[in-house]
């Protein structure tokens, strides 16, 4: 079987992906990867089996098993592997073999939402909505919580040292969960800001194995940090 846009077999592609100190054929079949993998047995697959199938050229199974979406790419298998074989890189590559329309709708949908807005939010939150939520919650805290009258949650403050990002679910579904973080930053005197652009911490295009989308989102976020002249990008995800 050949893959779209490539004349190479999965094994050839995988060989190029592997770091110099580990290679496909070095697998000892010891099973340390599988014994410590919480995804072992799901969809009748496990890391060792996945690697052996790839090694034996069973590309059809590799490119179609839904197991690649059940693996969380946690890297425990590689951490344990005596030959340092990067199995998650292979899993990621197998994800790219799926036609986009066949990949999990939830993941691809979140990627598309993020690509459609300058905030990079997987929930499609618009810049002005994020600003409104932050300012609304802040006003309530300052009014109702004694000792927090001067709490700040700066937005687009140029030259702040830290650019703070935030998982979209917080501003959208549980905005009060943002407040403890603001208080801690305030307490330690941190010089920080949110940005209306590029503030979303998550990157579902990476999970969707959409390389171009993944890069677009990262570049969008970097541009937002640089636009405000911040020195450190604080990732909460």
């Amino acid at each position: 079987m050949r893959f779209k846009g490539s004349r190479s077999s999965f094994k050839e592609v995988a060989r190029r992906l592997l770091p110099s100190d580990g290679s496909f054929d070095l697998c000892l079949s010891c099973g340390l990867c599988s014994s410590g993998c919480p995804a072992s047995g799901l969809a009748d697959m496990d890391p060792r089996k996945f690697l052996r199938l790839a090694s034996l050229g069973q590309d059809e199974i590799i490119a179609t098993t839904p197991w690649v979406w059940m693996c969380t790419l946690c890297r425990r298998c590689t951490h344990l592997c005596p030959m340092h074989i990067d199995i998650p890189a292979l899993v990621y590559h197998a994800r790219t073999c799926w036609p986009r329309e066949k990949r999990p709708k939830g993941i691809v949908g979140s990627c598309d939402q993020a690509l459609a807005t300058g905030t990079a939010s997987a929930m499609g939150t618009r810049p002005e909505d994020f600003r409104f939520v932050v300012e609304d919650v802040l006003a309530e805290v300052r009014e109702n919580q004694p000792g927090q009258e001067n709490l700040a949650a700066p937005v687009n403050r140029r030259g702040a040292y830290y650019f703070l990002n935030q998982n979209s679910r917080e501003p959208v579904t549980e905005p009060d969960e943002m407040v403890p973080l603001w208080k801690i930053l305030d307490y330690v005197g941190a010089d920080w800001t949110y940005g209306t652009l590029g503030w979303a911490a998550e990157n579902y295009c990476m999970f969707a194995a959409d390389d171009a989308g993944w890069e677009t989102l990262v570049r969008r976020k970097v541009a937002a940090v640089e636009e405000l002249g911040c020195k450190v990008w604080l990732n909460t995800e």
Binding site: P66, W69, M70, C71, T72, L73, C74, P104, K105, G106, I107, G109, S110, Y204, F207, A208
Partner: peptide
């Protein structure tokens, strides 16, 4: 992680 929360499984 890895998208599993939205993965549909």
């Amino acid at each position: 992680g890895g998208g599993a929360l939205q993965g549909g499984f």
